[in-house]
Nucleic acid binder design. Sequence first.
RNA 1: CGGGGCGUAGCGUAGCUUGGUAGCGCGCUUGGUUCGGGACCAAGAGGUCGUGGGUUCAAAUCCCACCGCCCCGACCA
Length: 569
Amino acid sequence: MRWSQAFIPTLKETPAEAEIISHKLLLRAGLIRKLTGGLYIFLPLGLRALHKVEQIVREEMDRAGALEILMPALQPPEIWQQSGRYQTAEGVLLKARDRAKREWILGPTHEEVVTTLVAGELSSYRQLPKNFYQIQTKFRDEIRPRFGLMRAKEFVMKDAYSFDVTDEGAQISYKKMYDAYARIFERCGLKTIAVEADTGVMGGKFSHEFMVPAETGENEVVYCDSCHYAANLEKATSQATKTDAVAASAMPEKFATPGVATIEDLTKPPFDTPATRQIKTLVYVVENKPVIILMRGDHQLNEAKLTGALGTGTFRPAEAEEIFAALKAHPGSLGAAGLKDFQIHADETLRGASEMTTGANEDGFHLRHVDIARDFAVNKWSDLRLAAAGEACARCGQPLKMRRAIEVGHVFKLGTKYSEAFNACFLDESGKKQPAIMGCYGIGVTRTLQAVVEQCNDKDGIVWPVSVAPYTVCLTPLSVAPDGAVMKLAERLYSELKERGVEVILDDRDERPGFKFKDSELIGFPIRVGIGEKSLAKGEVELKPRGGALTPVKVEEAVEKVLAALSAR
RNA sequence: CGGGGCGUAGCGUAGCUUGGUAGCGCGCUUGGUUCGGGACCAAGAGGUCGUGGGUUCAAAUCCCACCGCCCCGACCA
C-alpha cells in the first residue's frame, strides 16, 4: 500500500470523547471513528488489524476441530420464548419490527439458533461430538456503552457451541476450547490469565474467563501468586476466617446508640466495637418475600454468590420502607436476634461467633453479647462474602491479591439447559434418547483488538505485535522525488518485500521526515525502514523496530534483515 | 435508571460570571521559503454557538424544556 493512496487520518490531538489510552490511540492512529455512542466505524487500518485477530481466531478454532458456520444476526423471538431467555435476558435484547409489525431480535448470542440447528440435524451419538462456531456481529442493548470498542452496542464476537454425548466428552470439548483460547490470545501478543468465573444468566455449570490485566479493565480479578488460584471477584472465595468465639458470653444486652447508622459509627468511641465483632443485617426482597442476610461487619455481600445460595436471581435490596414494615426499625439499627418468621441466611464466617454486637431492631439501640448459635435462628449457612485482597487463599492459605482486568474470552460448560429446551437429543449406543451436553465459548474480537492496544503502547503510540499489526513494515523514504536515488531504492524494496509476502506500506507522502516518523510511531508498525541520503551514501538503510534501537543495514541485505527482524518479534 | 460533567468550524478549545463584533491553535486551500524528529512566512476558505421555546431593544452568554455525548454505579465478549 502506498500511503498517499491510503486513508489514514491520524490526529495530533485526542478527541474529547476518549478517556482511556487504547481508545485515544485507536482514534488518533486513524483506526476507528465514532458514529454515535457505542457504534464505531472501522477505517482501513482498523479493519486490517481486526481481520488479523479474526484470522488468528479462525485458525485456532479450526485447529481445535471446530466447524465454522454463519447464523443470522436477526432472530425470531419464538426461540427466545422457548429457552425462557425472552424474559431473563430481556435487558440486553435489541428488537426490531418488520413491515408487518412482527418483532425480531438482533442476536446478542446464538445458543437458541445453534441448538435449533442441531436439534434438526443431529440424531445419533455417531455424529457427535460437534463444535460449531461463527465470527459475527452481535447486538446488545448495553446499559452504558463505554471506552470505544470495549463495550459497544454492536461488536464482533466469535461464538462457539459444542455438543457432546457424555459429560466426559463435554469436558474434553471444554478443555480443547480452553487451550485454543490460550493460544489465540498468546498469538495476539496478549498476556492473559484464565480465571474461574460466575456463570450468570447463561445458566451454566462452570466457566473460565480470559482476562487481560489492565488498570482500565471493568473486572476485578482475585489471584494467588503461590498456587495460581485465580477467579473473578464475583466468584472468588477466600478461607473463612472463623470469628473468634469468646468464652462465657453474657446474655444479650440492649444499649442506646443514638445517631449510630453504620458499622463505622460503632467502631468509634464510646462504643469501640471493631467491625469484626459486629453483625451486619441486610434485607433483600427475594421473589416478593423479605429475606435476612447476615454478614460480619467488615465483610461485603457478593450478590453473585447470593444468587447461588438462594437458587434464584430474582432479588433486590429491600427499600427502607419495606424494611421498616417488616422489622419495625430502619437500616442502621437492624438485627436478627430472636427473629423466627423470616428466612435468615448467614455467611460462614459468622458460624460459632459469640460476643457480637448487632442492631436491636429498634431505632437507636443495639445489642451486645450476642451469640449466633444461641440467639439466632439461621436457616442457611453459605459463603456469601466478597473476597478481599489480603485474605487467605482458600487453596494454599497465602494472601490473595487483586487487580483489574479486561475480559476478552469466556468458556462455559452449559450442560443440557438448551438441548432440553430445543429437544437437541440423540440416540445413544443402546438406542436411548439423550440430550446433548453443551458448552459455549465466546471471544470479543473487537474488544480483543482494543485490549491489544491497551496493553501494547508507549508514549509515542501503539506498539503492535507483528501478528495483528495492520502493516508489519513501513518504508520511509526521506525524500520522495521520483527520480532520486532514495525513492528509487524505496520503490525497489517495496516491490521486493511485497514479493516476499510482507505486508508493507510505503510512506510516499511529500512530508518532512519528523512528520513521517511521528505518524509511523503513532500507528505503531513493528518495523520501520528509513531510507535517506545520508545513510544511502554509505550504502545503508536504517532498520528501526518499533520501540527498539535503530540499526544501519546494507542495502543489499535489507530485505533479509527485515524478514529476520519480523520473525524475531 | 440514579449521581456528576460537557455540547462554540473537521479536531482541540477561549468567550458565558458582568447580554451588544464569535476568537485562538491544529488541520484544510493558494503562493513562496524550507527539508533527518509533528517547519516557517503570506493570503484565504470554513461557524444554524446541540434543538425548541422564553426574557430582552439586543442572547453563545440569562431562564425553561428536550436531545446528544463523556465519566461513576447495576449488565456483559
